[in-house]
């Protein structure tokens, strides 16, 4: 069980959080093609390694935030605001 750093509440156990998957996916406009829309809905890079993803501290402050996490080691590198850009140095 991981321990995640909520930017507002500090380090808390994994089961207080909800993982929202890959972050910073841009929502296409309504007049996009079926292909673009399908890609937005379902297609993910799903990297083995560093993954920028969003989480919500559901059983806590309720806030969403971003992290960069290694999907193999589960080590967490950067923790950053939900509307912030991914920091450059992200090595966990």
């Amino acid at each position: 069980m991981m321990q995640l750093q909520c930017p507002w509440c500090g380090r808390r156990p994994e089961n207080e959080f909800h993982c929202g998957g890959t972050t910073a996916i841009v929502r296409p406009p309504i007049d996009c093609s079926d292909e673009v829309w399908g890609n937005y809905l379902f297609f993910r890079k799903n990297p083995k390694g560093l993954h920028a993803e969003r989480w919500r501290h559901t059983f806590g402050c309720g806030q969403w935030f971003n992290i960069v996490r290694d999907t193999v080691t589960h080590e967490v590198g950067a923790v950053y605001g939900i509307t912030e850009a991914q920091p450059r140095a992200v090595d966990p």
Partner: peptide, 13 residues
């Protein structure tokens, strides 16, 4: 509530 919060915080901030 989760969906509203996600849309509000992540898309319509």
């Amino acid at each position: 509530a989760l969906a509203f919060e996600e849309w509000q915080q992540c898309e319509y901030a």
